[in-house]
Amino acid sequence: MTETTSAPRVLPRFLSAGDTALVVEFGETVDPVVNRRVMQLGDAARAAEIPGLVDLVPTFRSLLVHYDPLVTSRGAVEASLRGLLSDRDSEAKEGRLWEFPTLYGSEFGPDLEDVAKRTSLTPERVVELHAGTDYKVYMMGFMPGLAYLGIIPKELELPRRSEPRVRVPAGSVSIAINLTNVYSDESPGGWHLLGRTPVRLFDLQRDPPILLAAGDRVRFRSVAKDAYDDLAERVKSGDTSFHPVDAGESA
């Protein structure tokens, strides 16, 4: 087959996930290039409006394609997807850019000091590194609205906590391995908590309830307690609206 890109491209593997879905696997690691291919195929499949498609779930390294087996079949869906693969050499769409005001440290980021100690950095430097990088939403998962963001600066990489917390508050900004996230709701969690944002990633009273989507871009802005409190107060009073600083290339 012919490829217009210069680098040789390894074809993805098509794997079974029952009779209502299939997996298109581009790799087995967390890797920006692998994830970009996942996103490209996801964008193309959405645009192609393949009959019988129920949902497309991009993950770090694969695209899970849910379909209705009474409308289509594994064979037909796989053929459509293969067709979309062959003429790809476009960049993934630039997703929306979000900026989350974040209060680092103190009781809002109870692991900041510990992370600094374990990475031999000052807390100030940890914040500078974490807030100084633009991240991409590699995938959504774990709970409604939770985004896995990557990739954090190498200096901040740490394994997950050996003892997960039973309760991590919603809005907690955390890191583990080479990723960062914001807890969309209170839950148990084993990541290191650096700070907290008052922005609600998941709110059923808002339309749409879930803020982020795979492919979006996120940056954190370190704010002082006053600014945090102002926004937290607004959210508490019921106004959970929040908008991206850049709308990206809309679908």
Binding site: G18, T59, F60
Partner: peptide, 26 residues
């Protein structure tokens, strides 16, 4: 490395005991 899950998926954690995932699966 995490990937997608379907209803009915049979996942096997480290203890080797299978779990069949139903409608409320992650």
């Amino acid at each position: 490395v995490s990937d997608g899950i379907v209803t009915g998926a049979i996942q096997v954690p480290g203890n080797g005991r299978p779990i069949v995932l139903l409608a409320d699966h992650q």
